[in-house]
Simulated scan of single mutants.
Amino acid sequence: MKKLVAYITTGYPDKNFTIDLALSLKEAGVDSLELGIPFSDPVADGPVIEAANLFALERGFSMADLLEVSEAVAPRIDTLWMGYFNPFYHRGVDYFLQKAKGYGVSGFIIPDLPHEEAAAYRPMFDEKGIALIEFVAPTDPPERIARIVKDARKFIYMVAYAGITGAGKSESLEETIDAVRAHTDTPLYIGFGVDEKTAKEKARGVDGVIVGSAFIRILLKENLTKSQKIDKISTLARSIKERINE
């Protein structure tokens, strides 16, 4: 069965909502949860996720909120931290790895840490048994893909197109998929532009999908109550999970 990874912005509108949404997504069939760490300059994210980041920061998000949410949800759903490198570097990568290990967080997704620069930190992740998720893109030549996926852990994040999340572009991915498959059996998941309409098509040839903006659009709707947001996001997750496995 193909997997569904759901991205949500930690702490928006508040940390208790994040916990309730995470557990509801588990019941809806989500296999892994990306807890997005709000950041003021999320360069890989489109305007939808950027807005949620800024709203969370304006409401006082702190790393303590991330830890509290992780403590509550990681024992119940496979949990990853998705964030930009600056906060990890500022406090110390080892500090976050120790916290992640204690709470049962299984991996980090750091989109602005290139494979080559990540090499210095990878032994620290391996020592803790925590995955540092690797990225591949249609713009990567086969020789670079071979280097990236050689020691990939947990899953490989394939970017569906060059650009930002939620842009809805379309590019041919067959060559990229073949290049990954030629060098590893590590599961390959696709992200960027995946929603209810595109999920079935994008899931072809890969092992799972990563969905973020489609959920956050609902999260940002001011005319919905918190419970309505949770219901709608969970219903969408259930539908996407069904579609990728039809």
Rank of each mutant, 00 (worst) to 15 (best):
K2H: 05
A6V: 05
Y7I: 02
Y12D: 11
Y12S: 05
Y12Q: 10
P13G: 12
N16W: 12
N16Q: 12
I19M: 08
I19Y: 00
L21T: 09
L21D: 02
A22L: 14
K26F: 01
V30L: 02
D31A: 01
G36R: 02
F39K: 12
D41F: 04
D45E: 15
G46Q: 09
I49L: 09
A51D: 07
R59D: 12
G60Y: 10
F61I: 01
F61E: 02
F61D: 03
A64V: 06
A64F: 01
R76D: 10
R76S: 14
T79W: 02
T79H: 06
T79F: 05
W81G: 11
Y84L: 05
F96V: 12
Q98P: 05
A100C: 00
K101C: 08
G102S: 11
Y103V: 13
G104Q: 07
V105A: 11
V105N: 00
V105D: 06
S106H: 09
G107A: 15
I109D: 14
L113W: 14
L113A: 10
E116R: 02
E116H: 06
A119L: 15
E127S: 13
K128S: 13
K128R: 14
A131I: 10
L132R: 07
F135E: 03
V136H: 05
A137Y: 03
P138H: 01
D140W: 02
D140T: 13
I145K: 00
R147M: 10
I148F: 01
F155S: 03
F155K: 04
T165V: 11
G166L: 10
K169H: 09
E171P: 03
S172Q: 13
E175Y: 07
T176W: 06
A179V: 02
H183P: 09
D185V: 14
L188P: 05
G205C: 07
G205P: 06
D207W: 07
G208P: 00
G212V: 01
A214D: 07
F215D: 11
L219C: 03
K221N: 14
E222Y: 04
N223Y: 14
N223R: 12
S227I: 13
I230L: 14
I230T: 14
D231I: 11
K232I: 05
K232L: 13
S234A: 15
T235N: 11
R238S: 12
S239V: 13
I240P: 06
E242W: 00
R243I: 06
R243A: 08
E246W: 01
